[in-house]
């Protein structure tokens, strides 16, 4: 919109940005419109060329493609591959794109036909096992969270434009939760995945006294065995632990382990 961008004398290219969605609630994209205070600055920093939820104009090339949602149908693989072809940088936006999100909860049933029948009866409907984007295309950058945090997206976009290395916190949510001087939810009798979930959300849920469900996936080197131990010490069943571990898909492999030790719930179909 305005003239040439630059930072510390380095001329910068205003990136052409596209937003795309596969199977999702489209909430992560909406979060960008929820940037009321900074929306106009944001629009000055990038050139949005594709944003179906918000605009009619479309373009076919873009520097950065933000893709929300997970892959749950064959035509989405085609769309995703197409987006990848036209994008210099492909960003997985939100937990669905990074891990499969809540959608991948259906993978825990052995039987996809049962899933279809449960919702659509005998009406024919197409679906497949849920996958994150990285199962099909190269993902250059992941923005975690359900939903994503708009401040984080703004920081990441600014860093991309300026050419700074994008870094995610490697430590778990506990770090940010304590820095907010919250009461540990275990003290209050609530289960929480904060000790193993990647931070960066500023303890969004736990600061509201809601235990962490691990939407941002595991922290680097997360001590999952100890997490399980803690849940038991505080009197929470494997099922309660599993509800959280499997909710967004970031902890899928550990959820498998817990599930195999917890025979009451149906086992996840082994990936071929």
């Amino acid at each position: 919109m305005s003239g040439q961008l630059s930072y510390l004398g380095i001329p910068l290219v205003r990136p052409k940005v596209g937003f795309f969605e596969l199977s999702s609630c489209e909430g992560c994209q909406l979060q960008l419109l929820n940037n009321e205070a900074t929306l106009l600055d944001f629009l000055n920093l990038v050139e949005i060329v594709n944003f179906r939820e918000g605009m009619s104009e479309r373009a076919d090339t873009y520097d950065i493609a933000f893709v929300e949602g997970s892959v749950t149908r064959k035509d989405e693989i085609t769309r995703l591959t197409e987006i990848r072809k036209h994008a210099k940088i492909l960003v997985a936006l939100g937990s669905c794109a990074c891990f499969g999100g809540v959608n991948q909860l259906k993978n825990r049933f052995r039987d996809l036909d049962w899933v279809k029948k449960e919702v659509y009866g005998d009406f024919p409907i197409e679906t497949m096992e849920v996958h994150p984007l990285a199962d099909f295309v190269q993902v250059d950058l992941e923005i975690f969270g359900c939903p994503i945090k708009k401040e984080e997206v703004e920081r990441i976009v600014t860093d991309l434009v300026v050419g700074k290395t994008v870094r995610h916190p490697e430590y778990p949510v506990c770090m940010e939760c304590k820095a907010n001087e919250n009461i540990c939810l275990f003290e209050l009798g609530e289960p929480c995945l904060g000790p193993v979930t990647r931070a960066g959300c500023d303890a969004w849920c736990t600061s509201n006294r809601r235990g962490c469900w691990g939407c941002r996936g595991p922290a680097e080197g997360a001590n999952l065995n100890q997490m399980k131990e803690i849940m038991h010490i505080y009197g929470f069943s494997n099922e309660i632990l599993l509800d959280r571990l499997e909710c967004f898909g970031g902890f899928a492999s550990f959820a498998d382990t817990v599930r195999s030790q917890n025979k009451k719930t149906p086992a996840r179909k082994k990936k071929s």
């Binding site: 510390l8 004398g9 380095i10 300026v162 700074k164 290395t165 870094r167």
Partner: peptide
């Protein structure tokens, strides 16, 4: 090699 030095690598003479 890192974030700072990669950026420094791009700046021009005269940068403050």
């Amino acid at each position: 090699v890192g974030n700072f030095t990669n950026f420094l690598d791009r700046v021009e003479r005269g940068t403050k």
